[in-house]
Design a protein around this nucleic acid. Structure first.
Length: 533
DNA sequence: TCGGTGGAG
DNA sequence: TATTCTCCACCGA
């Protein structure tokens, strides 16, 4: 089997891009998108001031009083725009598998698309004519590359039409142009090339050292992919007004890593013979899945005389360990995967991201939430936010559930002091014992939603909170310092089909003997929970 | 299945 | 080093 060709797209300072669309006066100026006292992200002009992600907002304002501030505590606009990006990209490359990572990154497997373009070029004899014979008149007009594959028609079924506007009300549906004239095809790639010494010309990508027929055209496939990627970036910029950086390589990890070399707005292709060289020079902390813990394990093993954590390079690790020695450092199964990543090997497939999330959660952090009754109150707006977000994420335009959450989870960080460090603890409870929840799509007023949240709070969440507090050694009544640092409510356990409701609106009894279950109520009778206009 | 950990943006 | 507000995979009990 031939190697895959993968694109990794990363939208530049995505929250900032969203805010710039909402308020164009932000374009080109230094500004911060903050959550509490945390810099969630910041515009590139703000980065030039020396400010950083995750820094303190207060310190940033002290150093740069004119830097503008935008509150980013509600993720709703970013989630909404992220979905637009996703559907735009899927529509622009029908037939390609698209996997989403977070709100603003995507991987696209363009192997089949690139191979069909390659086959067409070979069929038309355009490839070798173009580089070997006299430069024909038509040559400087380039070639036409297709954005569709013949593969897997079901993969594209039901996808939205390509559309040059993300504003549904004002959009003028542009005709879907599924091919493009690539004018510089015979001259050079529109990408940065790693390594730069390789050269960007088409002949440079037609040279191959491999005798494996599957790999003979490998670099040329990357070349074709880089032209397609540039066209995609152009369409994203024109159609949605967002800037992104893109990497082109033979697997997800390499594509993501190489894509970060020329941010913002850069396109970078990693030639196949340079994988070892590329990885060797990389900082370990830039390799996906080498998070704080994994690096700490490495750091401990290598001793403190080595590079500082932030500077540790892959080549240092590879020169210190062979595979068996490295794998032993980690729990079974983990080490093999990490070792492969250090070699630039990653066979994880691009998986089409499901339209339906597996969970929805809402949380907030607190400084002065110091009693259980106050926490019970604070859960009300959280629960209302959760219900609103569920309506956005889990219910379609016709009011049908896309998937049914069956579990409610409450997580808290609770301690005896305001900044005593503590971990999250959580407790889950079935939602299927609370039938009114499944009426969410039918609620018409804010008042009804508030009422539902109140009922869920009393019936489900408050008992869960009490159980958690007791479990953590806090008394439900009486004195004793208690600080709720964080509250999180989540709807999880999403299933495809409407679950059986076990009993209607029971109050779970967290302590004491089990009550006999009530029979399921027909849903008609649930109307009485809500006052309708 | 539940609860916790570690990774990602 | 954790900071914000999430979402997901995975693991042991």
């Amino acid at each position: 089997m031939g190697k895959r060709i993968i694109l990794a797209i990363d939208f530049d300072a995505f929250y900032c891009g969203v805010e710039e669309k909402r308020d164009p006066t932000l374009v080109g100026v230094p500004f911060i998108v903050y959550q509490k006292d945390c810099i969630a992200t910041l515009s590139y002009p703000a980065r030039e001031l020396g400010l950083h992600k995750l820094g303190s907002v207060a310190a940033a304002v002290r150093a740069h009083p004119h830097v503008r501030l935008v509150n980013g505590e509600s993720l709703a606009p970013y989630r909404e725009q992220g979905k637009q990006l996703w559907s735009f990209v899927r529509a622009a490359l029908p037939g390609c598998t698209v996997e989403r990572l977070g709100l603003e990154e995507m991987w696209i497997d363009v192997t089949a698309l690139v191979e069909s373009n390659l086959a067409a070029l070979i069929d038309a004899d355009v490839l070798f004519k173009g580089i070997s014979e006299e430069v024909a008149d038509g040559l400087d007009q380039g070639v036409r590359l297709s954005l569709t594959t013949t593969a897997a028609p079901e993969a594209t079924a039901g996808r939205e039409e390509f559309n040059y506007s993300d504003n549904e009300e004002n959009s003028v549906a542009a005709p879907l142009e599924m091919s493009f004239l690539c004018e510089d095809f015979f001259f050079q790639t529109p990408a940065h090339v790693f390594p730069a010494s390789h050269g960007a010309t088409m002949p440079a990508f037609l040279q191959t050292e491999s005798t494996d027929p599957d790999e003979f055209y490998l670099d040329f496939k990357l070349y074709i992919a880089s032209h397609i990627a540039r066209e995609l970036m152009l369409r994203i910029s024109l159609g949605l007004g967002y800037s992104c950086s893109v990497g082109v390589a033979t697997n997800k990890t390499l594509a993501k890593m190489v894509g970060s070399l020329h941010k913002p707005g850069g396109l970078t292709v990693l030639v196949s013979s340079a994988v070892q060289e590329f990885m060797a020079a990389c900082h370990v902390r830039k390799v996906p899945y080498f998070g704080a813990k994994s690096r700490h394990i490495l750091q401990d093993a290598m001793g403190h005389d080595t590079d500082r954590d932030g500077d540790l390079r892959v080549e240092s690790v590879l020169s210190r360990y062979d595979r068996p020695e490295f794998v032993k450092l980690y729990p079974p199964g983990q080490g093999d995967k990490l070792w492969a990543l250090l070699q630039g090997e990653d066979n994880a497939p691009v998986r089409e991201t499901s339209r339906v999330q597996k969970q929805v959660s809402i949380e907030d952090t607190y400084r002065e939430l110091t009693s259980i009754p106050r926490a019970e109150q604070a859960l009300q707006p959280l629960l209302e936010s959760l219900l609103r977000q569920l309506r956005i994420d889990m219910i379609d335009d016709d009011g049908a559930w896309l998937g049914f959450p069956t579990v409610l989870r409450l997580a808290v960080r609770v301690a005896t002091g305001p900044s005593t460090l503590s971990n999250r603890v959580s407790h889950s409870h079935t939602l299927t014992s609370f039938a009114p929840f499944y009426l969410l799509p039918e609620l018409e007023t804010n008042n009804e939603l508030t009422k539902l949240a109140e009922r869920m709070r009393h019936s489900l969440i408050v008992p869960m909170l009490h159980k958690l507090c007791v479990g953590q050694g806090f008394r439900l009544t009486g004195p004793g310092p208690i600080y709720f640092q964080l509250l999180n409510v989540a709807a999880t356990g999403v299933v495809a089909h409407k679950p059986v409701i076990t009993s209607a609106a029971v109050k779970p009894a967290p302590v004491g003997p089990v009550r006999s279950a009530k029979p399921t109520r027909p849903s008609k009778k649930l109307d009485f929970y809500f006052t309708r206009k």
